[in-house]
């Protein structure tokens, strides 16, 4: 062993990649993707009849150049609806609502969804970049704490 490195992710993705990460996170948490598209009606309390909590997706850098602006993807589970969106400034956020849920419960769900989306984004990007470098993915497991563990081997001259 030579070193252990802790890296904080930075999400810089065009919408297709970000939308895929949201969908992968949703499926891993038992959510269903309801719809995805541009300029859908924004999720509001009025629509759902419950409280609404909106959070920024952590570590997501604004993507300029119109890569997926005003895109939305909506997911649902057990009466909770969450909508990930990218605004005109390129900022990613998640809005969570659900009738009968407290604000704390919705906030907690939004934070977990946002984190798992970043996790899935990092996982997909790592796999693509490592394959391009000739690194072999030997093993992939998901721990009880929902961490994803990869064992990778690389032969070098």
């Amino acid at each position: 062993m030579s070193a252990i490195v802790i890296i904080t992710p930075i999400v810089i993705a065009a919408w297709p990649a970000f939308g895929s990460a949201v969908a992968a996170a949703a499926v891993s948490m038992g959510f269903t993707v309801l719809n995805e598209g541009v300029n859908q009606t924004r999720l509001t309390e009025h629509q759902q009849g419950g409280l609404t909590v909106t959070l920024d997706v952590p570590n997501s850098a604004a993507v300029t150049g119109g890569l997926g602006r005003d895109q939305r993807i909506r997911i649902a589970r057990d009466g909770i609806i969450a909508e990930f969106s990218r605004d005109a400034r390129g900022r990613d956020s998640v809005c969570v609502t659900g009738e009968g849920y407290s604000q704390d419960a919705l906030r907690s769900m939004g934070e977990e969804l946002a984190g798992r989306t970043v996790q899935q984004y990092v996982l997909a990007k790592l796999k693509t970049e490592m394959a391009g470098r000739g690194m072999d993915l030997v093993e992939e497991t998901v721990g009880e704490d929902n961490s994803v563990r990869l064992r990778v081997r690389h032969w070098q001259n």
């Binding site: 961490s147 563990r149 081997r153 690389h154």
Partner: peptide, 8 residues
Amino acid sequence: EYEITISP
């Protein structure tokens, strides 16, 4: 060899 852990 690399062991990579991606937290939730």
